[in-house]
Design a protein around this nucleic acid. Structure first.
Lengths: 107, 107
DNA sequence: TTATTAAATTGCAATATTACAATAAAACAA
DNA sequence: TTGTTTTATTGTAATATTGCAATTTAATAA
């Protein structure tokens, strides 16, 4: 068909897939990387940093926000985006579990 | 347009995005999960485990293989798939770096 | 050789994603 | 109020992904 059969999979599997989908575009990886580089949380200049138009950046930010990977705080006219450490921990932990399960295996 | 402007981003950013894209579908998360559950590396019954047709599973396995998340070994008529620990380490390390960089920040 | 079994490939339809021009909305300044 | 700045939304075109029936390939067995 074309639509992914998400209803056939567990909530857990769908949630992890959604998190990874949010990170599955180089622009969104670059945005996360940029947010880590900038000391102050002042944002909006992400548009100046990346070679994409403002609506495109806005769309990518929305997806990162929906996935809880970043948070946005309104500061006057601007919006201050920053990374949500909880979600980073969640993903890192997922791989920690995988690595742990792998320990008892050969291949 | 529609195509992602991957040439505008660094190799590093594109590589990480590719890894996450490979994990951005619940069926592929479920495959990885299943490979972790099964003691012996005997595979092919992934098709019996998941509610998807054989060609669809084959396609998902191909994507996981291309991303180096799993490896396939030919065993007679069957193919034995298993997880590539190196790639898991690589991804986990990526989040380790992020978490480390986050330590020196507030939000 | 002819089955049989397991997995990959092809072709196609349905749906999703990406990118951006144009526009709108929201907050503030003059 | 009118302007300015910043971000979001809408609409649309190009491209990518998903899923599967039908078929093919590859390895082995009879």
């Amino acid at each position: 068909m074309g639509a992914s059969k998400s209803e056939s999979f567990s909530t857990e599997h769908n949630e992890m897939a959604s998190l990874f989908k949010a990170l599955s575009h180089p622009a969104r990886i670059a945005i996360v990387d940029y947010l880590l580089k900038v000391d102050t949380c002042i944002c909006g200049d992400i548009v100046n940093e990346l070679p994409l138009a403002q609506p495109t950046i806005s769309q990518h930010l929305k997806e990162l926000k929906n996935a809880n990977i970043i948070k946005g705080t309104i500061e006057g006219t601007a919006i201050c985006y920053c990374i949500n450490p909880d979600t980073i921990d969640k993903i890192e932990n997922h791989f920690g579990v995988i690595r742990h399960k792998l320990k008892n295996k050969c291949c």
